[in-house]
Amino acid sequence: MLTSLWQGKTLPVLVVCAIIAVFWYLGSIWLNADMQRMLFENNGQASYTTAELIEGTLTQEKPKLPTPGQILAELNKTVLETAPTSKRSLVYHGSVTISATLLGFLIGSMLGMGLAILVVHIKSLDRSLMPWVVASQTIPIIALAPMIVVIMNQFDVTGLIPKAVIAAYLSFFPVTVGMVKGLRSPDPLQLDLMQTYSASQWQTFLKLRVPASVPFLFASLKVGVAASLVGTVVAELTKSEDGGFGARLLGGSYYGQTIQIWAALFAAAACAWVLVSLVGVVDRVVTKAMGARP
């Protein structure tokens, strides 16, 4: 029992998390100590014990580094105890971000798959367009986000759509590249076999290329959904009046509300994790339905 725990992944991950937590608390004490000394001085409290100092550093209102406990308390307050319709609720902001992310991800991955299918079948597109799609991976296309938001605003396109557009183009490129790789993954022997069966191009596509592309597709969908979320959050920095995690980050940084920033970060990270795991679950279901054996 003990050796299986030792050999597995759960225990090591927990130990590493514990180590991180310990360092985090030490970091909080170290980073917040100066501020706490100043607070004591301002209160006219000339002498204080180290224990008082440490306790003070862990309970500040605007600490330089809030403790994990403070962040969890804030999360508890804004997620569970505040009504989801309130603008102070992280559930509200999360739903704003998630809906734009999902809409954009859906559009972006559909377009990506469509383009990949075209690229695999039209040689001139492959030679002329594909190098640009690949090159786009090396440039920070996210820098376009503020401009797209503002320009779409001029056309009175507001709300979900501008953010979804940004999320879409961020997921579009990785999905295209992955899907093209996947559709090309059958080796010449298998393609030859299809030819000896006198399969049409359409049959080869459906029965050989598409199934072969599935693992590649899901790998890039995971990258794509994470990129979509980042895109939405960055878009919300420019378009902060609608709320969302990006707006929470920006608001927190204006008013020095560090706990609020960290809580938004943790919530965004949890959402990213859930989205990626959801894609992973669909991946497992699909590959199982296709007859893959674990």
Binding site: A226, V233, S253, I261, L265, A272, W273
Partner: peptide
């Protein structure tokens, strides 16, 4: 690697 780490920027 999948998390939106850029959010750490304000901190």
């Amino acid at each position: 690697s999948a998390l939106p780490i850029v959010g750490i920027a304000p901190i």
